[in-house]
Design a protein around this nucleic acid. Structure first.
Length: 175
DNA sequence: AATCAGATTTCCT
DNA sequence: GGAAATCTGATTA
């Protein structure tokens, strides 16, 4: 069962928390790679000094799109993937920080690494994850403790705790 | 057209 | 633990 539009139409903070444990599926040729979401972060618009959409008009427009839109952002030598959340017109997004590989063997314990592992690049930018042939997310009922912490690797961060990850999971990124 | 900054990763000490 | 590596989009001249 894939996640639908209503899942992404909620607040970024709620979606980020709820996205943990879900199965991210990536179709590569005839193979389907599956990985569990273990670490996420919520991002906002003007109020968020960490988000580049704060100053970047294009990204801001993308974040205002319908929930479920894929937002790929390149920095340094890596691609970072986000999913737009909230209703249309609301600029919110959730960054996927780390995945736990289920049926493949590759490092995915970091925003850049997981994109590399799943072959995600800027070609996915602006596309929707709803009814996507190559990338989608499946439900997964599972119990675990969710930890809330401050975000990582950002110069100016909000004092709010917008980073979520699964407690005691070995695949979350360091620091 | 050139420069700069940025949500990272990896290698070296 | 610190710095280099090295890409893309925005900003500036």
């Amino acid at each position: 069962m894939k996640l639908g539009k209503d899942f992404f139409s909620r607040d970024a903070e709620v979606v980020a928390r709820d996205l943990l444990g879900k199965i991210l599926s990536r179709k590569q040729g005839k193979k389907i790679l599956k990985a569990r979401v273990v670490e996420t972060e919520a991002y906002f618009d003007e109020k968020d000094p960490a988000s580049r959409a704060c100053k970047n008009g294009n990204l801001r427009e993308t974040m205002k799109m319908q929930g479920g839109t894929i937002l790929v952002y390149g920095v340094h030598n890596n691609w970072l993937i986000n999913f737009v959340t909230g209703e249309k017109g609301k600029a919110e997004a959730v960054l996927i920080r780390a995945l736990e590989p289920l049926n493949f063997n590759a490092r995915a314990s970091g925003p850049g690494l997981l994109c590399k592992a799943l072959g995600i690049d800027k070609n996915f930018h602006g596309k929707s994850i709803l009814n996507n042939k190559e990338l989608w997310i499946e439900y997964n009922k599972e119990k675990f403790n969710i930890v809330e912490r401050k975000r990582i690797g950002i110069k100016k961060d909000l004092s709010k705790e917008l980073r979520f990850y699964i407690d005691k999971n070995k695949f979350i990124s360091k620091k």
